[in-house]
């Protein structure tokens, strides 16, 4: 599945929810399900300090593909991270560096990526792309 196909798949998953609370219920479930970072990778240098919630991001390259794991102390942030990683994992650094992550806006969560939201997500996406750029 390409990165674009994964984005479309997520947008379709969210189409069944017309109520905001149902959307968030789903995001929270994603957040609860995902143990997405190993404790030894939850170190200071992996921490992206947001004003409100904090995000840890670990990245590595395996066989030319990027592998990410991340975590957050806020469960909604964690759920959205889960979506981002689902889209970005196992992609080449070039694909990630140039990816247009439109699915976040498509499912109505763009506010979480605005720098003023201060939840670390905007910086996390930046760092995801930076780590991909470095790997090119």
């Amino acid at each position: 599945m390409t990165l674009e196909e994964k984005q479309i798949e997520i947008v379709e998953e969210f189409e069944v929810y017309d109520d905001w609370m149902d959307k968030y219920e789903y995001i929270i479930e994603l957040g609860k399900e995902l143990p997405i970072i190993s404790e030894e990778n939850k170190t200071e240098d992996k921490l992206i300090e947001g004003c409100q919630s904090r995000v840890w991001l670990h990245s590595e390259v395996k066989d030319g593909k990027m592998q990410f794991s991340a975590d957050s102390d806020a469960i909604i942030t964690k759920g959205i991270i889960g979506l981002l990683i689902r889209v970005m994992n196992n992609e080449s650094p070039e694909t990630i560096a140039t990816a247009n992550l439109h699915f976040i806006a498509d499912i109505g969560l763009q506010e979480h990526l605005s720098p003023t939201r201060a939840n670390g997500l905007a910086s996390m996406v930046q760092r995801l792309k930076m780590s991909a750029l470095k790997a090119i």
Binding site: W20, M21, Y24, I28, Q52, S53, D73, A74, I75, I76, T77, N119
Partner: peptide
């Protein structure tokens, strides 16, 4: 529970 999560859900209500 993280205040950010509660604030986000209250906002949507």
């Amino acid at each position: 529970l993280h205040p950010f999560d509660i604030g986000t859900l209250l906002d949507k209500q």
